[in-house]
Write a protein that binds this DNA or RNA. Structure first.
Lengths: 137, 137
DNA sequence: GTCCATGCAAACGATTTGCATGCGT
DNA sequence: ACGCATGCAAATCGTTTGCATGGAC
């Protein structure tokens, strides 16, 4: 498995402690959809004087390079380690975001699209299975 | 074709001039992805003292009822008249958002998803066909 | 040594809040 | 008449900017 330092280097990014720390944190939390703010909060516990601007810069750079994935939800920027096409399901009852595999592939449904696709996001909203069960009682 | 007044009434919403005006404007611009702010700007030209809060309230209510569709892009709330599943393609070169039909249906790719889905959004980013052509020269 | 990344503070802008008034039912 | 919707102003909050300093290469 590639180290985060190698990942940064092979994407043409300079290797700085802040970038390493951030990318490690995101990679160590697969399945999580971390807000820029919560990431900032976390890294401040390690490097107290890291400014928001640096965190936002790094997150943007990492997602621009395709190293992490970026989605917007409820007015916030969320980042996740998973960069392959998948389904994000947000429960409107509990607020949790679950990932699901795309059954088969995205390609068939995209056959009408003209142009070059660099990123695909499938975002579902609804009531997750555990909230559905609680409501049934 | 149902009038916007009928649409509001049958969704259990009170019929007010502001709601009618807003919904009409969105319905009259199919294929457009209107920001809350641009909608506010537009209606101010008709009702100069309509506050942002009212516009935001109404847009939220309309999308909660499923009368219009809501997506988030680049930190802004966008609204469109189309509420059936379709593809939103944002060109990273010119910023335009194009709609495409989903080839076949969403359902097959969603077969892994547990829970009740109330809204599906497919959001693509890339370079649209006209920007691809301009770059080829 | 060069240039990009970081640290810092202040600004920004889209959206939201609280409350008084008005209007649809 | 009742209760939700509107008008208004101010506040909020996630994010961005400008610029000086520091560190990776």
């Amino acid at each position: 498995m590639e180290t985060v330092e190698q990942t940064l280097k092979s994407s043409g990014m300079k290797v700085t402690p802040q970038r390493v720390m951030l990318l490690k944190y995101i990679k160590e939390n697969p399945g999580e959809h971390l807000s820029a703010e919560s990431i900032h909060e976390h890294v401040k516990s390690i490097t107290p004087n890291i400014p928001a601007a640096t965190v936002y810069n790094i997150l943007k750079a990492l997602s621009d390079k395709g190293i992490i994935n970026f989605i917007e939800l409820e007015g916030k920027a969320l980042y996740e380690s998973r960069t392959d096409p998948h389904i994000n399901f947000m429960c409107q009852a509990c607020g949790k975001i679950d990932d699901y595999e795309i059954s088969g592939s995205m390609e068939p449904i995209l056959s009408n699209v003209k142009g070059i696709i660099t990123n695909s996001t499938v975002l579902l909203k609804g009531i997750c299975s555990s909230c559905t069960k609680s409501a049934e009682q």
